[in-house]
Design a protein around this nucleic acid. Structure first.
Ligand SMILES: [Mn+2]
Ligand SMILES: [Mn+2]
Ligand SMILES: [Mn+2]
Ligand SMILES: [Mn+2]
Lengths: 220, 220
DNA sequence: AAATAATTTTAAGCCAACCTAAAATAGTAT
DNA sequence: ATACTATTTTAGGTTGGCTTAAAATTATTT
């Protein structure tokens, strides 16, 4: 069976939504994610259901079948591997790669993915700290918490971001808070839920609530 | 204006045909190249004409406009750069890369192409010896002739292939006639137009007319 | 020049992916 | 339970890219 570019994007959207919400993806949620109308989604969802890529019941939402999930995770694998390529080999910055990877993830060639993976040294995480599933669709798990959950005196390492917007990524560059940065919470301000943080570079700065709630930390 | 994957492939086909035949591409020639029907071609050709990517007159065939040619050569540039990437970096063999490059050539990102070019060391020729146009669409020219045009006693270097089929490429691998091989014609057999050839590796062998007519040589 | 053959275009229609507007269903508030 | 709101589906239509069959044009043969 062969699956279109568009169908692939729907499967990825459904995967993302069900993972985030922990329940079947609603027509509306999918239409928001895909930036299209609910009517278009209903249309597509019927086709995907005919191809047994999803389970669909009218008014009940959508979940992926094993087959659908396999395709979705494989897309994510390709997306993230290409992002690593773009950053590590072509020296793009982490805020420039998502758009390009959105295109590259649709390239169909089993051997290409496997060779790329090898070429990149079998990375387990992408430039944003997101886990790269293996060829069976298994994601590495890592016990991570938000910076906002750290108490004064606790330390850890910046390992990922929740917010993937260009604005946030560029802000982090500016503040020298790249992945791998060691941080220690020095002080918590109840007033606006901001924190004074010490980074490994000796830099001390106050980070807003919003920033703290979008940075994943591995405690140590 | 934005151009679909399919439209891009038509432009590339038209470029290839007009270059090969030295005259406007006929509907039939395009339909053969695109593996579709003449009716579909007429249909598409109207659309491309509306977009001023081609000049089209009913029954008179098709030529590219400046704009159309620019897109076509840029596609060829991307195709060939990706082929270099696949061979040089991912260690694919030269008979495996065309299909994958057919997909990769459609990735849209100006900076990606330029960075890839730089990463590969600004190659001027692809793994099959075909010239890689620069970003203005200019192809390097090289005075090359077919092996079949060489006279006994003459020497040269294998620099390209006319036939790009897997069968031929694998045959060349088997015979150790990769690009860069130095060859000298020892003897010409009028009977079947074959040649006895000495390769730089000391290997001496008789090559058929068909082989000799599909190998590009740079004389010296 | 007329007849025949090849090429190209037109006509009509299919499918994927989208849209808007209206109808149906489900969820929430009174 | 009824009324109102939000969500979802259906109906009907568009566009790109494709198909087959028939008509028109051009090229070749006699
Ligand atoms: Mn991404
Ligand atoms: Mn990422
Ligand atoms: Mn190729
Ligand atoms: Mn090539």
């Amino acid at each position: 069976m062969d699956i279109s570019h568009t169908e692939e994007n729907y499967l990825k959207a459904i995967f993302k939504i069900s993972e985030r919400d922990g329940k079947p993806a609603s027509t509306n949620a999918i239409s928001t994610e895909m930036e299209t109308t609910a009517a278009s989604v209903t249309d597509m969802v019927k086709r995907l259901s005919d191809k047994t890529l999803i389970h669909y019941e009218r008014y009940r939402g959508v979940t992926l079948t094993g087959q659908g999930e396999q395709i979705a995770t494989h897309l994510i694998r390709k997306h993230r591997l290409w992002e690593v390529f773009l950053v590590d080999k072509l020296h793009f910055s982490w805020d420039e790669v998502h758009e390009i990877a959105e295109q590259l993830e649709h390239i169909k060639s089993q051997s290409l993915v496997e060779r790329l993976d090898e070429y990149l040294g079998f990375p387990k995480f992408d430039p944003h700290g997101d886990p790269i599933p293996d060829s069976n669709g298994n994601f590495a798990v890592r016990k991570q918490i938000l910076l906002s959950e750290l108490k004064p005196g606790e330390r850890g390492e910046v390992v990922g971001v929740q917010d993937h917007t260009t604005a946030f990524l560029q802000y982090l560059d500016r503040m020298e808070l790249a992945l791998g940065t060691q941080v220690e919470v020095l002080e918590y301000f109840e007033y606006d839920e901001s924190m004074r943080v010490l980074a490994n570079n000796g830099r001390e700065q106050v980070l807003s609530k919003k920033v703290c709630q979008n940075l994943f930390i591995q405690k140590h």
